[in-house]
Design a protein around this nucleic acid. Sequence first.
DNA 1: TAGCACGTTGCGCTCTGCGCAACGGTCATT
DNA 2: AATGACCGTTGCGCAGAGCGCAACGTGCTA
Lengths: 253, 253
Amino acid sequence: MSQTVDRALSILPLLAEGPADLGQVAERLGVHKSTALRLLRTLHEHGLVYRQSDQRYRLGARLFALAQQAVENLDVRDIAHPHLVRLNEECGHTVHLAVYEENEVLYIDKVDSRYPVRMYSRIGKPVALTVAAVAKLLLADLPEPERRALAEKLDYPRYTPRSTPNAAAFLTELALVREQGWATDLGGHEESINCVAAPVRGADGRLVAAMSVSAPNVVVSADELLTLLPLVRRTADVISREYSGNSPAKDAP
Amino acid sequence: MSQTVDRALSILPLLAEGPADLGQVAERLGVHKSTALRLLRTLHEHGLVYRQSDQRYRLGARLFALAQQAVENLDVRDIAHPHLVRLNEECGHTVHLAVYEENEVLYIDKVDSRYPVRMYSRIGKPVALTVAAVAKLLLADLPEPERRALAEKLDYPRYTPRSTPNAAAFLTELALVREQGWATDLGGHEESINCVAAPVRGADGRLVAAMSVSAPNVVVSADELLTLLPLVRRTADVISREYSGNSPAKDAP
DNA sequence: TAGCACGTTGCGCTCTGCGCAACGGTCATT
DNA sequence: AATGACCGTTGCGCAGAGCGCAACGTGCTA
């Protein structure tokens, strides 16, 4: 809607691919070098872009700081965190908390497994929508038309033979998840890793987040992991209740 | 330099403080609502801003994705990571990797302690400049005038009684660090946590990163932690060599 | 020394982004 | 149910902000 800002912001994903010099930026934006320079300077002043010693541009420090601050302000996280830690202490596995936002699902908190084998994931990282247990829960909660539309336009990468193959299968899975109120990912993302997930709901009953426990086959089998389901669901419920303000009221005037 | 972009980017830190509605944004920017709306829309299209269900705006998902991607592209990280993991396996404590950028020091990688007591830190988080061991190393490497100028304009928060108190003390410390080629933080940031750090150098001898091992007093005393110094320095040197392309050449045409 | 490549600067034209004012929806008040 | 206040949204005319051009400076290569 605003040409100048639009162009400036288009620089960011471009630089995310790797450092680029002025000429490259100007060319890929389709603007004159002087224009690109002005935009880069503005981005630079705000710290979103950094000029490295060889004069090329990269994404800058403030970007991290902003993402950081934004994550910390997400209030579900505050409430959920101690519960996630306790769950981790009880079962020993990796615990994740994720939210849905604008066609994406993001991890917003994580407590690492106590076992040496760890999953690759990171706070702020977008989640594989078609296979992750938390994604299934969050997407299953969308209004039907939206869910359908999203399912249609997704890609269905075959991470493993057990990955969700297509939109039809995915919608069926979502319907199941919606009904049973929990979800799993049994080797659909990484061959040897299983997850069980449960929903966190707000006062109005809508999903605000989803949490999961993940563990590799070498530590516990899928069946053993499923025995943790009641514990996971109970934890999610406690968080839901606290988030809705029902339960352990701390202090209020 | 570019008014429109400048205003648009000013919205980001504002939203980082917490969600805000259109009126608040317009007021704090000192522009008309319609202007603020146009800017917010553009930010929204790029995914940097998200509109939550109560119509207020927050920072959006793409911000995380960008920061994420940028971190992963930082190539020191790629090279260093396996070494950090190995160091963690050998000593069991939390290992950090940090870089300097535009008056800030950022953690770009972290391997958690195997002990239950963990430090609060996160990848992408700016580091306390005046006390952290990695910050001392990175700042000590700046050209003298720049170092001096930066030291003058910093704040010196008294996190603990052992925090660096002022610019003079800091410059003295930096000179020492520069000479000895390693640094410590003995309870200067958090009372009970100590760190030892060593530099990672590029082919030209300039610092490209710094790494540290951190542990709380309850696990090992400061003296015991210092016995790890040779190991930390050796690891840093290995990374330096590999980063400079000297050592374990993998493949090249 | 000449040539090239790249970042940088100043400037005049014009298109873009600005604020105004009016509209429309939602919610609380009477 | 009707009123009014509040907020987000829209269309528009004006002016100034941002655009591209062309010329300059610098550092590297041949």
